[in-house]
Amino acid sequence: MSEIVIEAKELTKQYKKQKAVDSVSFQIRKGMICGLVGPNGAGKTTIMKMLGGLVLPTGGSFSLFGGSTEEALCHARSRMSFMIETPYAKEEMSARENLEKLRLQKGIPNPKRVDEVLELVGLADTGKKQVRKFSLGMRQRLGLAGAMLSKPEIMVLDEPVNGLDPEGIIEIREMLRRFNEEENITILISSHILAELSQLCTDYMFIRKGTIRAFSSAEELHKICGEYYHIHTDNDSVALAVLQNKLGIENCDVLKDGSLRLFERLDELPLISKTLYENGLVPVTLHIHEADLESYYMKLVGDDNAEYSESDAAADKA
C-alpha cells in the first residue's frame, strides 16, 4: 500500500454558531485522485483551507507527509500546491508576469520554469495580454499553471472546473489525469457535481453538513451506481458457475441475498437468458439497473430529510 500523504483525525472547525467541519477523519495515499464531493456549504473548502493553513482548526489534527508540527506543515506545503476558490492572478499583469511574481515568492531559482508551465497549460501564446481580458477557462488554466510551478507532489484543487463549459471541463480533466499518470502527482479535488469527477477520480469522499458520509473507491462507486444486470434464479450459486464457465463472465458479484450483479456484456441479455435456461435454471428476476449516480449522490448528501444510515451504506456496498 502506498504511503499516506494526507491524514486527518477528528478534524473540526467551529465558528460562533456553526460547525463547518465536524470531526472529519480520512486518509489520502500517494498516487490517488481523491474527489471530495458535497453540496455548497458542506465543508469542502473549509477542509482544504485547513490543510492549506489559511484556517486554523478548532479541534482534531491533521498531518501532511506524516508531519503535524507547524514547521513540518510549512515544509510539507512547500511540496504541495493549492488552488482554493478564485485562482491567483493580478488583473493588470499578464500571465507571464503573474507567474514570474509567484516564482519569486516561492523561491524557485529557474526562470525557465515559467515558460514550461505556460506551455503545459496552453497559455504560452498569451504574450502581454492582461489577465483581466482572460476568459474563465484561461483563468482556471493560469491557476493550474501557478499550482504546477513548483512541481508539487500533491495538488489540492477546490472546484477547478467550476463555471467552465464542457470543453473546458474535459481539458482540465485530461490535464489533471496527465499530471497524475506522468508525474505521479496525488490530487485532492472538490466538486459539488459528482458527474464531473466520475471520470477522473480513483476514490471519493462524500461530505454533507461538515461530516463525511461515505468513502468509496471508483470501483465500488461504479458497482453501486453503474449499470448492471440484477439476476435472481432458483439456484443462484449454480447460475454464477454457469455464467463464469459457459460465458466467461468475470465481472460479477453476489449480493447478500444471494442474487447476482453482472457488470459486463450488458447488451447480451437474450444470450444470458438462453444460457441460464439451457442449464436448467429458471430466472426469477432479470432486469437492468440503470446507472444512477445522481440518486446515490442525493441519498448521501442531497436530501435533508433522508438520513443515510450505516445500513444504507452497507446495502449499497453489498
Binding site: G52, G53, S78, L102
Partner: peptide
C-alpha cells in the same frame, strides 16, 4: 485584499 498573500501561506511560508 486580492488574496495573493494567501498563496504565500499555501506555498508553505510561515505567517
Amino acid at each position: 485584499r486580492d488574496k495573493t498573500a494567501n498563496y504565500e501561506i499555501l506555498f508553505g511560508k510561515h505567517r
